[in-house]
Design a protein around this nucleic acid. Structure first.
Lengths: 221, 221
DNA sequence: CTTGAATTCTGAACAGTGTTCATTATTGTA
DNA sequence: TACAATAATGAACACTGTTCAGAATTCAAG
């Protein structure tokens, strides 16, 4: 029953990805299987393996698309132009709210980003790291105004620190592994982290907050 | 081939857990299976289900034991007695180093804590949350000296924030999902977070960088 | 048109998974 | 010694990812 003409390889690739996504959206990772995808698109299971090396590769591709969507979401958020410490805090907060909204709208896809542990523990492909990097660029940009005097490597380090911290809070809250512990919503806890972290950057080398009327006491060493 | 006398139910329970642990230690979650456990202890697969409801329950029990071990490790660490901001920073750093060492020595068991996503997304049992809570108590205690004027709920919130932030950095680094992004070791990034976070607490209500002679309730809201 | 190579797709098969449960083997008790 | 209670079995069920010989279809050349 070959029907090469029905769908081009690229079409087929997209069909598979869409079917996989639909399954994940509906029932999470546990609902995803080669046979279910095949059944959904009207092909035999073996066909998937002409297009994707294995299910891990398929999931990685799907995760890439999710990262892209997240990027689109966050990069479209309106930001404060004025960029003193308070405004930067607000901007980061906006990114957080956007992120949390994205998670709310795409919970199972978002979970797939972290829940799925690929069999081979090799490093991720370059194109995947690229997409993560793009996301961090957004954080970089939001933070830059208060850290004019540091290298881009330091900058990236600080962004990554903040971002992965927020990830830690959100993901533990999602897994309910801090269930009893955090009565507050993860949003509130994240906000606490952001404020505290940014406040803590005050004494960092290269910091410049244009501190208007924030809380006083800037020490310098 | 029943041999009720060979091993008491409790013995059996421990044998299963030990076998499961050995499998995870050797080859990670993917090496764990009911049949392999059974084979390792010389029983049939069905026997496991007389003792554990299912594999998820078994893993949860195993994770509980891992949390206990981590607690034992961290609670035994020598801490600074002097408790100004610098000393507290050092103490948290010591906890971090202890944690990272534990991960290094028990990588696959530690991964199991977070990698395994139970089928049912019900909340975790109370005894599990308890163990997590015990761990956070350690962080609480380390932080308390600089935050004499806050409620224990706020205290716990701040500890959880810091701890889950560190978790986020470490776990993302472990998953290599920040591979290219963070060239630095996760230790250095965590240290940056700790220092910045503690520094950021300075302006927090109830903060006191000095040694509190008497813990006075000076919260004013 | 016809032939034949190239491509596309199939689906049975393999080795594995968690889990169940009727049977069987062993034990403690009467 | 007989019998109920318990403990353990292991085949069976419904899954999983993955492979690959062979069938179906398309395309190009003669």
């Amino acid at each position: 029953m070959a029907r090469r003409v029905d769908h081009s390889p690229d079409e087929l690739k997209k069909m598979i990805l869409d079917a996989a996504e639909a399954l994940v959206v509906t029932g999470g990772l546990s609902e995803l299987s080669a046979r279910k995808i095949a059944q959904k698109i009207g092909y035999a299971p073996g066909t998937l393996y002409n297009v994707y090396a294995n299910i891990d590769a398929l999931i990685l591709t799907l995760n890439g698309r999710t990262l892209e969507r997240l990027y689109d979401n966050l990069s479209r958020l309106p930001m404060n132009e004025i960029k003193d410490l308070g405004a930067v805090n607000e901007n980061i907060e906006k990114l957080l709210v956007g992120y949390l909204a994205f998670i709310d709208d795409n919970r199972n896809l978002w979970r797939l980003l972290f829940d799925h542990v690929p069999a081979s523990d090799e490093t991720l492909p370059e194109w995947y790291d690229q997409k993560v990097s793009m996301l961090l660029n957004i954080v970089d940009e939001a933070l830059r105004p208060i850290l004019p005097g540091i290298t881009s490597e330091e900058q990236r380090e600080i962004s990554a620190t903040l971002w992965s911290s927020l990830h830690g809070i959100i993901s533990l809250a999602d897994k309910k592994k801090l269930g009893v512990v955090i009565s507050q919503s993860s949003h509130k806890v994240c906000s606490l982290l952001i404020t505290t972290f940014l406040n803590g950057l005050k004494d960092h080398e290269g910091f410049s907050g244009n501190i208007p009327k924030t809380i006083g006491g800037k020490s310098d060493d």
